[in-house]
Design a protein around this nucleic acid. Structure first.
Lengths: 189, 189, 189, 189
DNA sequence: TATGAATGAGGGTTCATTCAT
DNA sequence: CATGAATGAACCCTCATTCAT
C-alpha cells in the first residue's frame, strides 16, 4: 500500500497494539485487528516483531523504561522528602491517567508469563526509590520512625491501588493531593 | 464413565475452573483444560453450566457473596471505629490471601464485561461500609475531619492495592497490622 | 417417573419423534428433545429403538404401510376408472393434509440413505396402481390411448408435486377436484 | 499452502459445497468436508464466506437468479401460448436435470429458514409467469376457460413434482414432451 | 422397565503465523 | 519492504449413545 519508512510503520503498529491490547487484552487482541488499526498488512507486523508475544513485550518494556526515566528525574532533585514523596505519587498518578491504556494492558494480563522478570525488576526499583525517600524522611526527622523497607512495600501497594482505580474507573477521579495526604498523615488525628 | 454424585462433579468443576481461570484468565482458559483438571469429560462441564460465561460468572458470584457476608459480620458489632477499620482491612487481606486464585481471576478479567453490574454493586457496597466507619470515627472524635466519601474511595483503592499485591506477589508478605497503621496514622510524625 | 406399559411408552416416543423430526429434520432432531417431548427418559428411547436411525426408519415404515393399506381399499372396488383415479388422488391429498408432519419428514430427508429400498418399493407399487387404473380407463374407452407406464410415472410425479405443495404451503390450499380435473382434462379445450 | 487465484478458490469451494450440501443436506454437511472436497483448508472457506449459512445462501441465490434469467428469456418471445408453456416446462425440467444437485439441496432443506423470502419471491414470480401464459391462452381461445390463478398454482405444483422426480430418480427419465402433453391435454379423450 | 449423569467425537468458527508474489 | 491468501491447530459447544443405579 503506502510506502512508509520502516520506523514509521513500526511506530504505527506499536501505537495500534496499545489500543487493541488495552481494549481486548492479550488473548482477545488479534494480530489482524492490530494490523488493520495500524493501517498495515498482517505481514508487515511480522516484519517488525517476531510474533505476538514479542510485540506485547516491546510495548510493556517501552512504557516501563519511560516510567523509570521519569522516576529518576524526580529523585535527582530531592530536597524535602515530604515534597518528593508527594511529587512521586502525583507523577505516578498523572502518568497512569495519561497512559491509561498501557496500564490496562498490564492489569489485564497480570500473571501473564511474558516479561515477568522485567516487571519484577521494575517494581523492585520503584520500591527502592520509595524506601530511599522514607529513609531520608526519617533521617531528617520529618517522618516518624518505622521499618522503611516494610513501609515502602506498603506504599507501593497503596500506589498500585490508586493507579488501578484511576485506570479502571477513570470517571471516579480523586485528587492526588488527598492520596498523598492519606499516606502522609493517616486517618487519625 | 465414572459415576459420581452430581454435586460432587459440580464441585470438582468449580474448583478446577478457579485454578484454570486464575492461571490463564478467562480467554486463556479452555473448557477442555478445565474438564481435564476436574477429571471430568467436556460434556460434563456443560451438564452443570450452560457455557463458559456462566461457569465464570458462578465463580465470581460465589466469592463475592461470601465476602459480602463476612463484611456484614464485621460491621454488626462495630464499637470502636479504629478497631473496626483494622478488622475490616485485616479481614479483606486475610480473605485475599486465602482465596488468592479467585482474586486473580477478577484482576485478570478486569474490564471484562460479564457480571459487571454485580461487581459494581459489590464495590459500591464495600465503599459505603468504609464511609460508615469513617463517619463514626469522625463523630466519635477519633478520626480527623475529612471528606468521608472521598476518603472512603481512597481507602478502598488503597485496599485494592494491598490485595493486588497479596495476590500478585504472595511471597512478599507484609503485615495487615502495618497496613492498618499506615492508613490510620500516616507516614508523618 | 410414571410407570407405563411398555407399548404405551413406545407409542408416545413414536408420536414425539414424528413431531420433532418433522420440525427439525433428521439431523436437527435430538434424541433428548424426542425423549422430552415424549415425557420419557433418554434411556427409555434406547429401550425401544436401537438408535436414532431405527426410530426414524420405524416412523417412515409405519406411515407407508398405512398408506399402502388405504390404497388397497380404493383399488378393491374400482368400477369407473375416472372415479377411481379421482378417489385415489383425493385420498393421497387428504392423507397428506392429515399427516403433514410425516410427509415433511420424508421430504426433508429425501436422499437420506436409510430405508431407501422401502421407499422405492412403495413408490413402485403406487405407480403400478396408477398404471392399472389407466389401462382400465383405456380399455373401457374413457381414456385416450397413451403409454400407460410412462403416463403413470408422470401422474405419480404430478401427485408428488401436489402433495409437496400441500405440505410445504398448507395455507395455499387448492382443491383436490381441480387437481383431478387438470390431470383428466388438461388445459386445452 | 498452494497458491491459487482467489476467485479460483472461491469457485472450487462453491462447487464442493454444492456436492456436499446436496449429498448430506445443510446440517449433515460439515465445513471440514466441504473444505476437503474443495482441496482447500478450513480457514480458506471462511475467507470467502462469512459462515456456513452464507455459503449455503450464496449457492441457492446463484441458482435461483440463473433460473429467473432463463425464465425471462422464454417469456420474452411468447407467441403461441401452447408452445410457450411447453418450452417453459421443458426448460425447467432440463434445468433440473442439469443442476440436479442444486435442486436436491433445496428439497432437503425445505422448511429451512435461511433465505426463505428469496425462495418465496422466486416461487411467486414463477407462478405469475405461468398465470400470464394461461391468460394469454384463454384469451387466444386455445385454452379452455378456467380460474387462471388457481390453475397456475396447480401447474406449478405439478412441475414441482416433475422436477422432484427428475432429481430424486435421475434414472427413471420421462420425456418433457409427455409431461407437457399431460398438462395440456389431460388424460381424457 | 426406567433413569439421567457421563462420555467424547465431531461440528462451526477463529486466528497466529507463513510465504509466494 | 510489503502484501494478504492460505494453513491448520485449537476453541466453544452439541449430541448420540452408554451404563450404573
Amino acid at each position: 500500500m503506502n510506502k512508509r519508512s520502516g520506523s514509521e510503520s513500526k511506530k504505527r503498529i506499536l501505537s495500534a497494539a496499545v489500543k487493541v491490547f488495552s481494549q481486548y487484552g492479550y488473548r482477545g487482541a488479534s494480530m489482524r485487528l492490530i494490523a488493520k488499526t495500524a493501517a498495515v498488512s498482517v505481514g508487515a507486523v511480522y516484519l517488525y516483531f517476531r510474533n505476538k508475544e514479542e510485540l506485547y513485550y516491546t510495548l510493556i518494556k517501552n512504557k516501563l523504561d519511560d516510567l523509570d526515566a521519569r522516576t529518576g528525574e524526580i529523585l535527582r532533585d530531592m530536597e524535602d522528602p515530604e515534597e518528593t514523596m508527594k511529587n512521586f505519587i502525583a507523577m505516578r498518578l498523572e502518568h497512569a491517567r495519561r497512559h491509561r491504556e498501557h496500564i490496562l494492558i498490564q492489569v489485564k494480563e497480570n500473571g501473564f508469563t511474558f516479561g515477568i522478570k522485567m516487571k519484577k525488576d521494575f517494581f523492585r526499583h520503584q520500591r527502592e526509590v520509595v524506601e530511599k525517600i522514607i529513609r531520608k524522611g526519617i533521617a531528617s526527622g520529618k517522618f516518624r520512625k518505622c521499618d522503611a523497607e516494610e513501609v515502602s512495600k506498603i506504599i507501593i501497594c497503596t500506589l498500585r491501588g490508586f493507579i488501578l482505580s484511576v485506570v479502571v474507573e477513570p470517571d471516579a477521579l480523586f485528587s492526588p493531593e488527598e492520596c498523598g495526604s492519606l499516606i502522609l498523615k493517616g486517618l487519625l488525628k
